[in-house]
Design a binder for these strands. Structure first.
Length: 651
DNA sequence: CTGAAAAGGAACTAGTGCTT
DNA sequence: AAGCACTAGTTCCTTTTCAG
């Protein structure tokens, strides 16, 4: 055995090498617990004398005195052909059928009509060409019906040859044979043109137009009518008749043949034919022009999230994996990315642990703390984590080093809460849990399918939203104006105190979070738009006249990590995902903004801008804005429902 | 984190020229 | 004609790199 070296000369030698490399015990241990192959059916990698890599495995056998047989990995391409592919029976089938001379291959009634139609069309074309003086092409088309008929007959014989056609039935040429023959002839003539004609000398023609045209002649004819009535295709596909399936197969064969002819590289591992293909990780349906996340990925997401949500603590690494995966999943709607901000926050917030120092070490301890409350030096006797952040001392939260003075002195040990940046332990915040639970539910829901192409953009004449904040009150207002119809508008006032109970990290003065309220106003506008176009999965681009640069950047990129704005950006993006309305905020000052500004400051009973009426007011509740609770009401109120409607809201 | 593409390498095949 | 050595090319597979 060339190049294999001594160890391949016998199983004993191979086993010897294995023992030398991995030790006698390991070998015996592996060998005793092995089932059929050791270490596995795949074997293990071995480098031969000449540096060649191969694989070696041991097979348990009682034939050999050692009890095992060494097997090398060698490619075996000498496998038996299945019965259906044997040449001998195929030839016999044809010979038997044509054993008697003068066998006639007939066209069935359908095929005869088709052949006549081909003849007619081709003869007309031939005549026109001859009149124009193109005798050569005219002659080709003149002979084409004959070629087509002969080739169709041969295709029928080929079916007999490969065993598709029953031997005890007379051969009949069907219209499918004719159609295939026609397409093949067309392809062959195109190929001939490329190979011999002017096109052959032009490499671009081979790579581009001609080859595509030759292909398109077949594939377009088949795929276009199918696409036109794609809604019926789903049911029809599974019941496709044998002939249609054969035509589809034929089409695929042709595409492959042409690619091979022109050395167009094909990745066989990724080659897929059909209306549904999985590509770049997504499942595409080219008939309904939609895409969705493949089932395996949905399942992976579901499992991933339920494991994460099961326990109280998690690890930084686990969070990174989940966030990374969601980053990928959110390709489907980039506005969803702000959702991830809370996960990243959790990632960089290690869990705090308690430490204690002796009261006598108090002064020394203070010198270990930097101005921004980081442990910058080791304190003898206390294993304080270097680089950790001091959160509180004696249960008193600290904001700066100066706050340490407020902590009273007592003879007892001083207890500290410090976060350790080296720790990988993490706890999910409330926001993250809500966020992850949403996606966990989403992963368990039936397939969503999203269109590949968005519906055309639609723009109302004018619309805007604005917010104002003064003291404890927050006002939002906005409107849509379409043609001559009266403007639809909203105007609501919320108190900061009531919002502080629901959203953490809000400042004590409403004016400081004006960007948040601007974003909230945009959410109101999206809801208003969605209410005007209920049920429609519209793609509406909203050039909003917004006079705050903070909200502008937020709504455009919809990604930020600073609190509390991140909460609002999250909600806005989810609302956009829900309603299918995407926001595109431009910084354009204009009169619309003065109206929106007016509406945001409007109080019940005050005068409305001209063209606005109380009847067209759209009421927005906090439930609708923040929890996306649908505004479904029963009217008149005395009526009841016979079933309990399923409620849907995020909290 | 993802998938695609590029790169790299092993195994194999076909063809060629030479010798026996 | 058969066998051998060599080369060029193909196929299959894995690893690395790249881009989003």
């Amino acid at each position: 055995m060339l190049g294999l070296g001594d160890m391949a000369s016998s199983p004993d030698a191979a086993a010897e090498l294995w023992k030398q490399k991995h030790g006698e015990d390991v070998f015996e241990d592996w060998f005793t617990r092995c089932e059929e192959y050791e270490p596995s059916a795949m074997g293990y990698g071995v480098t031969l004398l000449d540096g060649t890599l191969t694989r070696l495995r041991f097979r348990k056998t009682s034939d050999h005195p050692q009890g095992y047989q060494a097997e090398w990995r060698v490619a075996n391409r000498n496998f038996p052909l299945p019965e259906s592919l044997q040449l001998q029976p195929a030839i016999e089938r044809v010979m038997k059928y044509f054993s008697k001379p003068h066998q006639v291959i007939e066209l069935d009634a359908d095929a005869q009509a088709w052949q006549l139609s081909y003849q007619g069309a081709l003869n007309v074309q031939s005549h026109i060409l001859r009149e124009r003086g193109d005798v050569e092409l005219g002659a080709r088309l003149g002979a084409a019906p004959w070629h087509c008929g002969v080739l169709a007959g041969l295709l029928a014989v080929f079916e007999l040859f490969v065993g598709v056609h029953p031997t005890d039935m007379t051969l009949k040429v069907s219209r499918h044979h004719l159609q295939r023959a026609f397409q093949i002839l067309k392809l062959v003539h195109k190929l001939k043109d490329i190979a011999l004609g002017e096109a052959g000398s032009d490499p671009e023609a081979v790579r581009g137009g001609y080859a595509r045209e030759a292909l398109g002649a077949r594939s377009c004819a088949v795929s276009f009518p199918r696409f036109a009535n794609f809604t019926q295709v789903e049911a029809g596909m599974s019941q496709a008749s044998g002939a249609e399936a054969a035509a589809g197969q034929n089409e695929e064969d042709m595409i492959i043949s042409v690619c091979q002819c022109f050395n167009i590289p094909l990745s066989w591992a990724k080659l897929q034919f059909g209306a549904r293909v999985v590509w770049i990780g997504w499942s595409f349906n080219l008939r309904s022009h939609s895409f969705h996340l493949p089932y395996e990925k949905l399942e992976k997401l579901g499992t991933m999230l339920s494991t994460l949500l099961k326990g109280e603590f998690t690890t930084r690494h686990e969070l990174e994996i989940v966030a990374g995966y969601l980053q990928w999943v959110f390709q489907m709607h980039k506005l969803l990315k702000p959702w991830l901000s809370c996960l990243y926050d959790d990632m960089r917030r290690p869990v705090a642990t308690s430490y204690s120092v002796e009261p006598s070490q108090r002064i020394e301890f203070i010198s270990c703390i930097s101005d921004d409350l980081l442990i910058q030096r080791q304190l003898p006797g206390a294993a304080l984590p270097l680089g950790g952040r001091l959160l509180s001392v004696k249960h008193q939260a600290l904001r700066s080093k100066a706050d340490l003075r407020r902590v009273g002195i007592s003879p007892k040990r001083i207890w500290l809460r410090i976060t350790n940046p080296a720790s990988s332990k993490r706890r999910l915040s409330h926001q993250s849990k809500v966020f992850l639970r949403y996606w966990q539910q989403w992963a368990q829901m039936p397939f969503f399918s999203r269109p590949l192409a968005m519906p055309p953009r639609w723009l109302p004449d004018a619309f805007a939203a604005d917010a104002c904040a003064s003291g404890n009150k927050i006002g939002i207002g906005g409107f849509i104006k379409m043609g001559d119809a009266p403007a639809v508008w909203f105007s609501e006032v919320f108190s900061l105190r009531s919002l502080q109970k629901l959203i953490s990290d809000l400042p004590s003065v409403a004016q400081e979070a004006i960007t948040c309220w601007e974003t909230l106003a945009q959410m109101g506008l999206v809801l208003l738009l969605a209410s005007c176009f209920p049920g429609g999965r519209l793609k509406i681009c909203v050039p909003s006249w917004c006079d705050n640069t903070g909200a502008e950047s937020t709504s455009n990129k919809l990604f930020c990590t600073s609190l509390p704005l991140a909460f609002f950006a999250q909600k806005l993006s989810l609302l956009s995902w829900h309603t299918g309305i995407s926001l595109d905020v431009h910084h354009v000052a204009g009169f619309e903004n003065t109206i929106a500004d007016h509406l945001s400051r409007w109080m019940e009973g005050e005068e409305l801008p001209s063209g606005f009426s109380l009847d067209d007011r759209f009421r927005l509740s906090w439930e609708m804005l923040w929890h996306f609770k649908p505004d479904v009401r029963i009217w008149p109120e005395s009526h009841g429902l016979l079933w309990q409607p399923q409620s849907f809201a995020f909290s």
